[in-house]
Simulated assay, not measured.
Amino acid sequence: MSVRNTLFHFQASEMLLFNKKITAQEACDRNLVSEVFPNDVFQKETEARVQQYAKLPKISLQKCKLVSRELEKDKLYQVNKHECVILMERWQSDECMNAIMGFFSSKGSKL
Rank of each mutant, 00 (worst) to 15 (best):
N98P: 00
V36G: 02
R90A: 09
H82L: 14
S68A: 05
V41F: 02
C84G: 09
I59V: 15
E47G: 11
A24K: 01
L76R: 07
L32R: 03
Q52D: 08
I86C: 15
R90C: 07
E47R: 12
S34R: 03
V67W: 04
W91Q: 05
R69V: 02
I22S: 00
T23W: 03
S68T: 03
D94H: 07
V33A: 03
A48V: 08
N80S: 11
I59R: 13
M88E: 15
P38F: 11
C64E: 13
C96A: 08
Q52S: 07
D29Y: 02
V50G: 02
K65T: 12
K81T: 15
K75H: 01
L87H: 10
R30W: 01
S60P: 07
C28H: 09
L61S: 11
Q25C: 04
W91A: 05
T23V: 03
D74C: 03
N31E: 08
M97C: 05
K44G: 06
M88W: 11
A48F: 10
L61N: 14
S60M: 11
R49P: 01
N31M: 08
A99T: 10
K55S: 00
N80H: 09
E72L: 06
T46I: 15
L87D: 13
A24V: 03
L66Y: 09
N98H: 04
P38M: 09
V79D: 02
K65V: 10
N98W: 00
L66I: 03
L61C: 13
Q78M: 04
Q92K: 13
S68L: 04
C84R: 15
E26P: 02
E89Y: 07
C64S: 12
N98I: 02
V41Q: 05
K81H: 15
E45T: 07
E70C: 01
R69G: 05
E89N: 10
S34M: 02
A48I: 09
K73T: 11
K81P: 08
E45Y: 07
N31L: 08
K75Y: 02
E26L: 05
